[in-house]
């Protein structure tokens, strides 16, 4: 499963600490040296208590947080690897648009821009021409059951669950190489949650490397090929969903 030839994401000894200059230069350590790999077609779920570093890890990979040290290698189309940590800002901006999907429950919808436009624009960024992007956007939104009446409504008017589906549609409009998911179904009702989970499963089957944080263990058990448990900003242990979840539930009880 974790075939070295198919590794898409290779995180090595990633560290992130924040220096809070406004609060006596206090140092907050979020990641203390995380190493992990995700292969094409593999879904790795991150688990651990809140504050363990799950979201920080996703953000540090996407570089919304600038890592303090370590490396994040991403495989490109020509099979070469590039270290996201050492890219310039404009190189990274280009790469984000074309190769990496990032869906977070906290992503803020662009103000006054229609739902359909947001998703179409994500497609154009991935290199689609405008007509193809429009078709793909329509397909994505339908697949996530977003009512067609809402397509030309500004995304900031939507409910939390609707917004989350717009974010998902934009992040997955064409299968990215790497998909980072931070609680992507947390605001969804059971029916919509089901379609979203299905979509994520399909993308994994199509060869996308997925690194995800889910709140509920059921989603993790269903989708993950591997679970990595973080504790205090390092990898605590990892294993199959069955064994890790049993261990996690044991701790919870």
């Amino acid at each position: 499963m974790n075939n070295a030839e198919h590794v898409v994401l290779d995180v090595r000894n990633l560290r992130k600490h924040f220096v809070l200059h406004t609060i006596d230069s206090r140092i907050v350590e979020a990641l203390n040296g995380v190493s992990l790999k995700v292969s094409a077609g593999e879904h790795v779920a991150l688990a651990g208590t809140s504050g363990a570093g799950k979201s920080s890890l996703l953000k540090s990979i996407y570089r919304t947080y600038k890592p303090s040290s370590g490396a994040v290698f991403l495989k490109l189309d020509d099979d070469s690897f590039v270290d996201l940590v050492s890219l310039t800002d404009s190189e990274l901006a280009t790469l984000r648009g074309t190769q990496i999907g990032y869906v977070s429950q906290f992503l803020r919808a662009q103000p006054r821009r229609s739902t359909f436009e947001i998703v179409t624009k994500a497609g154009i960024q991935r290199g689609m021409d405008s007509d193809t992007a429009k078709q793909a956007a329509a397909y994505s939104l339908q697949r996530l059951n977003l009512d067609e009446a809402l397509w030309d409504v500004s995304a900031s008017m939507l409910s939390g669950g609707e917004k989350q589906r717009v974010n998902l549609a934009a992040g997955t409009i064409s299968p990215p190489r790497l998909l980072l998911l931070d609680e992507p179904v947390s605001a969804l009702d059971p029916l919509n949650r089901e379609s979203a989970l299905e979509l994520i499963g399909t993308l994994t089957d199509q060869g996308v490397a997925v690194l995800a944080v889910f709140h509920d263990m059921d989603a993790m058990e269903r989708l993950a090929s591997r679970v990595i448990v973080l504790r205090n900003g390092v990898v605590d242990y990892e294993g199959s969903p069955m064994e890790t979840l049993a261990r996690l539930e044991g701790v919870a009880r």
Binding site: L76, D77, D78, S80, F81, V82, D83, L87, T88, S90, E91, T94, L95
Partner: peptide, 8 residues
Amino acid sequence: MTSVVSPE
């Protein structure tokens, strides 16, 4: 590592 192009 040269396959990432920085826009001109």
